[in-house]
Structure formats: structure tokens, C-alpha cells
Design a protein around this nucleic acid. Structure first.
Lengths: 122, 122
DNA sequence: CTAATATATGAACAAGTGAACATATATAAT
DNA sequence: ATTATATATGTTCACTTGTTCATATATTAG
């Protein structure tokens, strides 16, 4: 395989398929965007968080309840909810000493559903 | 917080909200499914793979071209394509000594698009 | 056959991650 | 104020992950 010059945007001798490579390069995601998108999927890419999101897609739950539902300690759940919040996948609502969590919007429910569909074979 | 009995499906003294917890538990994803779903998202959760998928969503590319497009070594790209293949996110087609990759189906394109939309704020 | 090219794979290592534990904060009840 | 409850956070550690380097396989050309 030829050694490629990644530093130039000009399409010179890129493997065999200059046109393809040139076009693809022009349309490529910038690092920043790829990073952000990956970040979102990464948060979705953990079984505990998938379970939490799935539970929240049905109804609003407080931390304590999530903990009970998925059978995991309060601390672990709180950590995970923080990550989910950071990725704007869930939102929270304070009520006295309790905090109620739910999905940030219906978008998230869709994303999750598509992931599920892909697995149950799509 | 009360100590919970995770070993029983019977709803006894689960925090304050027995009903919610009981329902949520009944509808919860089984570990196996949560694992599979997370696995898929986990594969989507890496900037390099996001870039690869995005490039492939536009046109079929061979390994060499992907390598050139995203500016990363052939070995690294090959490893990533293997993971993507394992998650049925891409498919491949052999032609002589070259292997052409493309998205496994339009579903994947949608999943990716939804992730992008969520980031560009949805 | 041998050489060259395209891709795949194995090993190793740095960097990142999730869970558990201890502890901190915040609110409510007495 | 003191105690109890609900949640959040900091730290630690075993484990995973992505890249690189070296090498293997496969296909084609000569």
C-alpha cells in the first residue's frame, strides 16, 4: 500500500480511487463533531445505562426507585444518572429531597428504540 | 434509604413508591438484551468509527480508501471495520484483493443521523 | 515459482471506564 | 439543633479499549 499524505487536502496519489477518497474527504465529519457524536453513543453503550433509560422511557422515576428497579446501589445509579444528564439524555426535577428523572425528550426514546430494533434483528 | 431485597420479584418495601418500582421491574429489559443493545451503541461510541460510518453512509469504500479518508493507519482501520462488522453495522464485499465496505442497511444511517441530530441539538 | 499489493490478525501498552466504598450535601422531621 | 432520609461526589481498583508494530493471509502480476 502506498504511503499516504494526510496533511494535504489535495487529492494526489491516494491509493487507486482518487475520486472516492477526494469526495469522502471533503464530506468528512470534523474531529470535533465526530467526538461529540461518539460521546453520546458511548453513554448509550453501557448495559446499566440502557436499563435505566429503558425504565425511564416508561415512567418518571426517582433515584431510589431506579436503584431498586435495576438492582444496583444508589451511588452507582447516581453516577450513571450524572453521565446521562451530562449527555442530555435525561432531565431531572427536584421535589423535596427527592429527584425525579425522565428522558430528556422523545428523541431519546426513538434512539433507544432503534438500537433495540437493530439488535432484535433489523 | 432502606436496604432493598433485589433477589425477589415480589414488591415489598421498595423505597416509597412500590407501584412504580413494581411496574418498572416487570417491564425491565433482561440483562441479555440490555447487554446486546449496549454492545451496539458501544461500537457507535468511538470517534474513529463514527467517522468511518459517516464516510460509508455516503459511498462504498475499500479499506485503503477509508484509511486515506480518515487519516489513520490501515491496521487500525481494519481492526475497527472488524468491530463494525461484528455489530452488523457494516457489510463487506470482496473484489480481487480488495474489500469494499458499506453500511449494513439504511437503518444504520438513520441511527447515525439521529445521533448527529441529538448533538447538533435536538 | 517470486514479488508486490490489500487486508487481516496477534501482542502489547497507555488511556479510559464502571462499580464499590466512604463521605458530603441537602432537605425534612422531631 | 439533632436525626433521618435522598441524592451527589471523590477515590480507588480491576477491567476494557484503541492504537501501534509486527506479521500473517490472500490475491494478482511477472
Amino acid at each position: 500500500m502506498k504511503q499516504l499524505d494526510f496533511d494535504t487536502d489535495v487529492c494526489e496519489q491516494l491509493c487507486e480511487h482518487d475520486k472516492n477518497v477526494c469526495l469522502a474527504k471533503a464530506e468528512m465529519l470534523v474531529d470535533e463533531d465526530a467526538q461529540s457524536i461518539a460521546e453520546t453513543f458511548k453513554i448509550l453503550g453501557d448495559p446499566t445505562r440502557v436499563k435505566i433509560l429503558h425504565a425511564l422511557s416508561k415512567r418518571e422515576l426517582c433515584v431510589c426507585d431506579v436503584s431498586a428497579v435495576i438492582g444496583m446501589g444508589q451511588s452507582a445509579v447516581s453516577h450513571q444518572l450524572r453521565l446521562l444528564r451530562g449527555a442530555r439524555l435525561v432531565k431531572h426535577r427536584k421535589e423535596g429531597k427527592m429527584v425525579w428523572y425522565s428522558l430528556d425528550d422523545e428523541h431519546i426514546s426513538l434512539l433507544l428504540a432503534q438500537g433495540i430494533e437493530h439488535v432484535k434483528h433489523g
